Amino acid sequence: MPAWYRYVTQRGLQMTDERDKASNDANDFVVRRLVKETGITEGQAIELVGFLGPHNWSSLVREAHLLKKP
C-alpha cells in the first residue's frame, strides 16, 4: 500500500471523527435545552432529536409539549 494512501485514509478518518464529535456536541446541547425548556425527560429528548434532528427546533418543542400532555 503506498504511503499517500495511508495518509489520505488516516486523514479522512480524522476529519470524520471531528465531524462526528461536532455533531454529537450539537445534539447534546439541543437535548439539554429541550429538557430545560419543556420539562420532558432526557431520554425523551434524545429520542426526539434522533427522530427529528437537532436543527428543527420548532418541531422538537411541539412534539415535546405533546409528550408532556397527560
Rank of each mutant, 00 (worst) to 15 (best):
A22W: 00
Y7W: 11
H65N: 14
K69S: 14
P54S: 15
T16V: 13
L66G: 03
F51W: 08
A26M: 12
A45W: 01
Q14V: 06
K21C: 02
A3M: 10
A22D: 13
H55P: 07
A26F: 08
V49T: 00
I46P: 09
S59D: 15
K21M: 05
R19T: 11
T38C: 05
M15K: 15
E42S: 00
V30P: 15
P70W: 03
L67V: 04
L48I: 02
E63K: 15
T9M: 09
I46V: 12
L13D: 14
V35E: 08
E18H: 05
I46S: 08
L52H: 11
R19F: 08
R6W: 08
T38W: 04
S59Q: 14
F51C: 10
A64P: 12
P70E: 05
V30K: 03
T9F: 00
F29W: 09
G39T: 01
M15T: 13
W4L: 11
G39I: 04
G39Q: 02
D25S: 02
K36D: 13
K68S: 07
T9W: 04
P54M: 06
I40M: 04
V35A: 04
V30D: 05
S23A: 10
R33I: 07
V31W: 02
K68R: 15
M1V: 07
L34E: 08
E47A: 00
V35Q: 10
V35N: 07
H55D: 15
T16Q: 15
R6L: 13
T16D: 11
N24Y: 04
M1S: 03
G43Y: 01
V35R: 07
R32C: 04
K68E: 11
P70D: 06
A64K: 07
W4P: 10
F29N: 13
G43F: 01
A45M: 05
G39K: 02
E37Y: 06
I46Y: 06
G50I: 06
Q14S: 05
V35C: 12
K68F: 01
N56K: 14
N24P: 05
T38M: 07
G12V: 00
F51I: 15
P2K: 04
W4V: 12
M1K: 02
W57G: 09
R62W: 06
G50Y: 02
D20H: 11
D28N: 08
Q10A: 05
D28Q: 10
R19Y: 12
Q44K: 07
T9H: 06
S59C: 09
T41A: 01
F51Y: 08
E37P: 12
E37W: 02
N56T: 15
T9V: 08
H55C: 06
E18V: 00
D28H: 02
V30I: 14
Q14I: 07
K69R: 14
E47T: 10
N24W: 01
T41Y: 00
V30M: 09
E18Y: 08
L60K: 05
E63G: 04
G12P: 06
L60W: 01
L52Y: 11
H65I: 05
T38Y: 03
